[in-house]
Structure formats: C-alpha cells, structure tokens
Lab assay of single mutants.
Amino acid sequence: GKMTGIVKWFNADKGFAFITPDDGSKDVFVHFSAIQNDGYKSLDEGQKVSFTIESGAKGPAAGNVTSL
C-alpha cells in the first residue's frame, strides 16, 4: 500500500535519496528512476512524498514516489 514520509536527503550527483517514513519505520532507499515527476527527477530535503515499498536487489526500496 501507499505510505507517506519526508525526504531525509537527496544526492543529485548519484541520483538517489532516502525517505523517513511517517510510521517510524527505518529510512527507505529511493533511486531516481522511482520518482514520478515529469521532467527532471529530483527531491528536496524535507519534502513530503507518498511511495510504495518494492523489494529490490539490495533490499527494500521506494517505488512510485510522488510529491504531496
């Protein structure tokens, strides 16, 4: 299901971020390909987002990341 959280930090050079979920679970890795914005895919620290949890090769990662 959809979860919500806050972007903890975003590394534009490497194209990934971490989200701190609102439910208090541990921070979730985000690859820029999961960001659903049109055009430039970036996130801002402190931004509120919704996302799903996908199981990636290196463990859980956020999918369908959308700005709220």
Results as ranks from 00 to 15, higher is better:
36 Q>K: 06
17 A>R: 00
20 T>C: 11
35 I>Y: 04
3 M>G: 06
24 G>N: 05
16 F>N: 02
36 Q>A: 12
38 D>G: 09
33 S>K: 06
53 I>V: 08
42 S>V: 08
9 W>P: 01
24 G>R: 02
30 V>A: 03
64 N>M: 08
33 S>M: 05
50 S>T: 12
66 T>E: 14
23 D>S: 04
13 D>F: 06
41 K>Y: 10
54 E>M: 01
28 V>D: 00
31 H>N: 14
34 A>S: 13
43 L>S: 01
63 G>E: 13
37 N>T: 11
60 P>I: 03
57 A>K: 10
34 A>L: 13
39 G>W: 07
8 K>D: 01
41 K>L: 13
43 L>F: 11
40 Y>A: 09
11 N>T: 06
38 D>S: 11
60 P>Q: 05
60 P>N: 06
16 F>T: 06
34 A>M: 14
8 K>G: 02
65 V>G: 12
68 L>T: 14
64 N>A: 07
68 L>R: 01
14 K>W: 12
61 A>F: 13
9 W>V: 05
24 G>F: 03
45 E>T: 10
48 K>W: 14
12 A>R: 11
35 I>T: 03
47 Q>C: 13
68 L>K: 03
53 I>K: 05
43 L>P: 04
54 E>W: 02
9 W>M: 05
39 G>V: 07
46 G>I: 02
25 S>D: 05
29 F>T: 08
68 L>V: 14
19 I>Q: 00
2 K>A: 11
12 A>F: 08
1 G>A: 10
61 A>D: 14
23 D>V: 04
15 G>A: 08
60 P>R: 00
3 M>C: 12
40 Y>S: 09
14 K>I: 04
42 S>W: 13
58 K>D: 15
21 P>K: 01
19 I>T: 00
52 T>D: 11
29 F>D: 01
63 G>C: 15
7 V>K: 00
22 D>E: 06
41 K>V: 12
13 D>S: 09
33 S>H: 12
4 T>Q: 06
45 E>H: 10
13 D>I: 10
22 D>T: 06
47 Q>I: 09
33 S>L: 08
16 F>M: 14
41 K>R: 08
61 A>P: 11
2 K>I: 12
24 G>I: 01
67 S>W: 04
57 A>Q: 10
37 N>L: 11
8 K>H: 08
20 T>Q: 09
61 A>E: 15
47 Q>L: 08
9 W>N: 04
16 F>E: 07
56 G>A: 10
14 K>N: 02
23 D>C: 07
38 D>R: 03
58 K>E: 15
19 I>P: 00
34 A>Y: 14
35 I>P: 02
44 D>A: 13
51 F>A: 01
62 A>V: 11
54 E>Y: 03
4 T>A: 04
61 A>Q: 14
66 T>G: 14
31 H>I: 10
57 A>I: 15
38 D>H: 10
8 K>Y: 02
49 V>E: 00
29 F>S: 05
15 G>S: 05
30 V>R: 01
30 V>K: 01
36 Q>P: 07
33 S>E: 11
19 I>E: 00
55 S>V: 11
21 P>G: 01
2 K>G: 08
40 Y>T: 09
24 G>T: 02
64 N>G: 07
65 V>N: 13
45 E>I: 11
20 T>D: 01
56 G>N: 09
66 T>F: 00
28 V>R: 06
18 F>W: 14
68 L>F: 01
14 K>F: 09
35 I>F: 13
56 G>Q: 09
23 D>M: 02
53 I>H: 08
55 S>H: 11
6 I>M: 06
6 I>E: 03
6 I>F: 07
19 I>V: 09
